[in-house]
Write a protein that binds this DNA or RNA. Structure first.
Lengths: 80, 80, 80, 80
DNA sequence: CTGCCATTTTACCGGC
DNA sequence: GCCGGTAAAATGGCAG
């Protein structure tokens, strides 16, 4: 029964299990993050503000990456 | 036939047609945008760079909005 | 800096501003669409099902056998 | 500025950095998952169908009548 | 035709 | 417990 309707069942199962394992780990991390927020809230911080700050910091680093990408493109264009 | 299975058919149809009309207009604008890019390309500009520039400008304005949101939140928190 | 690369900078700026203007309008329409969905939701319709209906209507001459999927969804929606 | 609001700023920074670190790890896992899908695609599997399978397996005791939808999709996939 | 990017859709989380 | 908004996933479209 290695093939059903032309599908390599074992291979498929293997891929799916790898993905499921990784998603479990991902969910665990999501849980950890929630805990940290919760802990911060307990320490008197405002979760909403924290999320906003983190978002802003991420935006800034995205800005920097984007700027670098543009410079790269320019360099390549001038070099070519 | 104003109701089928408890569904107000005419009302539903009306909503759907409004949405479809708006989406048509949206698609028309997407077409306009593509034309401008195309025109710019014809004038010798690099579309990829243009997209990057526009993205960066948008990020900057998002940054500003986000910063304002944080200040708002702080103000509300301090005022409360 | 109006003269870097000849008059190109001004030309580029003009293209970019045209695009940004068009994208603003596009976003405004997206907002209008969201509002209609919201209104429909308030009138008791199932937004998810509406989206599928609209998608189907767009297919038209395309593979209409997907209608089965919509019907299934309806059944589920009506049954729930 | 370490003393604004007492020691609070440093405490806040610590929480935020913990969260950012965890989110980085989460993103890394998301990347791993994408790679597995990509590998599966290279092996000839249909990613869209795989996603649905995984979704179904997660439901388990939940409304399993959705299995019909998956089966429909399979039929369509096998037919195409 | 393939990979990448934007948009759209779904799912989650905090607030009320 | 529900709703609204916000972040993640997934699909579709465009450029190369």
């Amino acid at each position: 029964m290695a093939e059903v309707g032309g599908v390599a069942v074992d291979r498929l199962r293997s891929f799916i299990e790898r993905i499921e394992r990784l998603e479990e780990e991902k969910q665990a991390l999501a849980g950890d993050i929630r805990e940290v927020y919760s802990e911060a809230k307990g320490a008197g911080f405002d979760i909403k503000v924290m999320r906003q700050l983190i978002k802003l910091r991420k935006m800034d680093s995205d800005d920097r990456s984007q700027m670098e990408a543009i410079l790269d493109t320019y360099e390549r264009a001038l070099g070519g």
